[in-house]
C-alpha cells in the first residue's frame, strides 16, 4: 500500500515537472505537427498508387501517421525522459545514491516515466492529432470503446518503451559512448515501431519478425487498436502481446540492474 502511494506521488511529481516545461512542450507540438505533414503527404502519394496498401484505407493510413505523431513523445520512441536522466545519474555516479534509497530503483523510475507519459499524452498528443484531423480526412472512431482500449494499449506501450529505455540507460554502466547508444536506440525505435511506415507494409519473413519485436508494441499495436483493425478476441491478443513484452523486458531490466548494483558495490561507482 505504501509502495503504491509512493509510486503515485512520484508519478504526480513527474507529471507536474514536465508540465512546467511550457516552451519545450510547444516546441515539441510544433515539431510533431511538421513531421506529421511531411509524412502525411508521402502517405497520400503512396496510397494514391496502391489504395489498400498494408490493409489500410487511405484514411486509415493518414490516421496512422497522426497517431504516430501524437504518441511519439508519449511512448518516447526516440528516447528521452527517464532514459536521459537516469543515464546522466549513472554517468555522474549519483545513481549510487539512488541504489541506497528504500524505494526500488526500477519501480521509482517507472512511476516517474508514467507521470511523464501522462503529461505528454495530453500536452503533446492532442494538438497534433487535432491538427491532422483538420488538415486530412482521418478515420477516427466515434464510439468510446475503441478509445478506451486505445488508452490501455498506449499505457502498455509506454511500459514497454520504458523497459527498453531503462536497459539503454543502464548500459551506461558498461559502455563508454552512452549518448551514441541512446541515439541508436532512438533510431531503432522509430523504424521498428512503425513510425516511418506501418509494419504491415514490411515484406515477407522480415515483416513477420518485425511485427513480433517489442517496438511493435509501442506504436503499431496501439494504432491498430484505435483503427479497429483487430476484431473481438484479436484485440485482447494484441494487448496480451504488449503485456508479455512489458513483463519480459521489465524482468530483464531487473536482472541487468542487479548486475549493475554488483558492479557499483565492487567498484564503488
Amino acid at each position: 500500500m505504501h509502495a503504491v502511494r509512493l509510486s503515485l506521488t512520484v508519478a504526480g511529481h513527474s507529471f507536474r515537472r514536465y508540465a512546467t516545461y511550457r516552451v519545450a512542450t510547444l516546441a515539441g507540438v510544433f515539431t510533431n505537427t511538421v513531421f506529421g505533414f511531411i509524412l502525411a503527404y508521402t502517405f497520400v502519394a503512396l496510397w494514391h498508387e496502391r489504395p489498400q496498401l498494408g490493409g489500410y484505407t487511405p484514411e486509415q493510413a493518414l490516421t496512422f501517421v497522426w497517431i504516430g505523431q501524437a504518441l511519439l513523445a508519449t511512448v518516447a520512441l526516440m528516447g528521452g525522459g527517464v532514459e536521459e536522466e537516469l543515464h546522466g545519474r549513472v554517468r555522474s555516479g549519483d545513481v549510487g545514491i539512488d541504489l541506497h534509497r528504500p524505494a526500488d530503483l526500477q519501480v521509482w523510475w517507472l512511476s516517474a516515466d508514467l507521470g511523464r507519459a501522462a503529461f505528454h499524452l495530453l500536452g503533446r498528443g492532442i494538438v497534433p492529432l487535432a491538427v491532422g484531423a483538420l488538415g486530412f480526412p482521418l478515420a477516427l472512431p466515434a464510439l468510446p470503446l475503441p478509445w478506451l482500449l486505445f488508452l490501455v494499449s498506449v499505457a502498455l506501450g509506454v511500459v514497454v518503451g520504458f523497459a527498453i529505455r531503462y536497459l539503454v540507460a543502464l548500459s551506461a554502466f558498461w559502455l563508454l559512448d552512452g549518448v551514441g547508444v541512446r541515439a541508436l536506440s532512438g533510431l531503432l525505435g522509430v523504424f521498428f515501431s512503425g513510425m516511418l511506415l506501418p509494419l504491415t507494409l514490411f515484406p515477407g519473413v522480415f515483416g513477420e519478425v518485425v511485427r513480433w519485436l517489442p517496438w511493435a508494441a509501442m506504436l503499431q499495436v496501439p494504432a491498430d487498436v484505435l483503427l479497429g483493425v483487430h476484431r473481438g478476441g484479436d484485440t485482447l491478443a494484441a494487448l496480451a502481446f504488449q503485456a508479455g513484452w512489458a513483463l519480459a523486458l521489465l524482468a530483464l531490466g531487473r536482472a541487468v540492474q542487479r548486475l549493475a548494483v554488483r558492479k557499483v558495490v565492487v567498484q564503488g561507482g
Binding site: R22, A24, A27, V34
Partner: peptide, 11 residues
C-alpha cells in the same frame, strides 16, 4: 531567447 525550444530546430 527560448532555451527549451531545441526541438523546433529539429523541425
Amino acid at each position: 531567447w527560448a532555451q527549451d525550444a531545441a526541438e523546433v530546430q529539429n523541425s
